[in-house]
Simulated scan of single mutants.
Amino acid sequence: MKSNPDTVIIGNPNSGRAGDQDFLERHADVLRAEGLTVEVLNTERPDHATELAAAAGDRLVVAAGGDGTVNEVVNGLSPQATLGILPLGTANVLARELGLPLDVEGACRRILDGGETRVDLGVATDADGAERRFACMAGIGFDAKVVGEVSPRQKRYLRGLAFQVAAFRVLFMNRFPPVEITAGDRSHVARFAIIANGHYYGGDYKVTGPGLLTSGRLETVLVERVGSLLRPDVFWGIIFRRPLNNKMESFTAGEVSARSAGAHVPVQIDGELWGELPMSFRVDPAALRVVC
């Protein structure tokens, strides 16, 4: 990475230490000491990271924050740009997927000394034709409702526990209409679905086995009854980080679509709410160059 001297760090002031300009500048100095020229930019509003990443052109763009910040950056990156990550969020799913250090000092060293690889991206398309890329997953129904229940303040102070508390609240206080998931000429009905581009979910929980990020396919995990997540075999499998697709129906495909008749079913993309059904999802193979 030392051959690329042109670097932008994009920080989210709502992702803990990333909001401390001095904190990011100190780590930018670590990169500068090794010959990189580094500009540090803080976001000021939702989707600002996408604008900043688009303006960065074909440079090394480092997302300093959580998965939401990474997603915003990914949605602005030039195809010739390279993504680096300083993991400062709650789950840091893509960083885990890539095997990156989860401490900032280690992540800086990886930016300096690591290699590069290309990974797939998922692409969600809503009923109006708007598109959103995702690095990790899209969630339909239950987990999107959970994401909507957790405030930035709760996430900051409770971290992963905030989602666990919200999950139980959503589980017992909501109804989940059936969702039809279609791939090719086959249709499936579920109450909750995860469309995965990688095998980690919500931190170090696992949805699928490894290798999905470079497979050229998305894996859809179907939960027919949301309450079945509390079945002892499923619940303890989740707790012990066993892939959810071992207990639930799943399939791989390059493209899937989802709809729900007469119901408002939300969708989350990489841990942030993004619209509602109907929506389609496809894989864009080797679309993202990343430091690994």
Rank of each mutant, 00 (worst) to 15 (best):
R241G: 10
K247P: 11
F235I: 10
G216V: 02
I239M: 10
N246G: 09
P243Q: 04
N246F: 13
T214K: 08
T214D: 08
V223W: 00
I239V: 15
E249Q: 13
L229Q: 05
L222M: 06
V223Q: 01
G237L: 09
E219K: 13
V223I: 12
S228T: 10
N245Q: 12
R241P: 05
F240R: 13
T220N: 02
F235L: 15
P232V: 05
S215N: 04
L218V: 01
G216A: 04
R242T: 06
S228Q: 13
K247G: 15
L230W: 01
W236K: 09
I239S: 03
V221M: 02
V223Y: 00
R242L: 07
L218I: 07
E224R: 12
R217G: 13
F240E: 14
R231P: 08
D233G: 05
M248W: 04
L229T: 05
M248C: 14
S215L: 03
E219M: 08
F235N: 04
S228G: 09
V223H: 01
V226K: 00
I239Q: 14
R231S: 15
G227I: 03
I239H: 09
T220G: 01
D233F: 15
E224G: 10
I239D: 07
L230K: 02
S215A: 09
P243A: 03
I239N: 06
S215W: 07
L213K: 06
G216E: 01
E249W: 10
N246Y: 14
R225K: 12
L218T: 03
L218N: 02
L230F: 04
R231Y: 11
K247S: 15
L213S: 12
P232I: 06
G237Q: 01
N245K: 10
G216C: 03
L222S: 00
R242E: 10
E249C: 07
K247A: 15
V234C: 01
E224W: 03
V226Q: 02
D233W: 14
F235R: 09
T214R: 11
V223C: 05
R241H: 12
R242K: 11
R225Q: 06
E219H: 11
R242I: 09
E249P: 07
K247F: 15
I238W: 08
F235P: 07
G216R: 01
R225V: 02
F235G: 12
T220Q: 00
G227W: 05
L218R: 07
N245E: 14
E249T: 14
M248R: 06
V234I: 10
S215G: 11
G216N: 02
S250K: 05
L218W: 03
T220Y: 00
S215H: 08
L229F: 06
G216D: 04
N245W: 05
E219C: 11
T220L: 00
F235S: 12
